[in-house]
Amino acid sequence: MKSLEELRAIREKMQGQVSMRAEDHTHTRVVVGMATCGIASGARPVLNTLSRLVQEKGLTDHVAVTQTGCIGLCQYEPIVEVMEPGKPKVTYIKMNPDKAAEIVERHLIGGHVVENYTLSSADIN
């Protein structure tokens, strides 16, 4: 290594990985339902897409992607919940990897809830 730029490049590459291991109360939590119902309807690729994009975009210092069990709305799986500190929880339903990517772009980076994917927009009887 002959320059600080090279060092910086390695740091940036690794930062997304290592900063996942921080503990902080100010993290935004992105939770994917990964019970049997979730897995059966395709939650795993959704989880992996979210996790990969959050790391690629360098968001791991304030966003944590984790899984949870059955949320109880099995017919709407895969479900993704976004919990930002101090804001009401947003529940996205019937996710797929493409929709997940959209949520990363528009919600986690852009700060706007993607209304048409949320549970509140769904027609629940």
């Binding site: 740091r11 690794m14 930062q15």
Partner: peptide, 8 residues
């Protein structure tokens, strides 16, 4: 690399 990732 992990050390560098934390500012090493």
């Amino acid at each position: 690399e992990e050390y560098i990732g934390t500012g090493g």
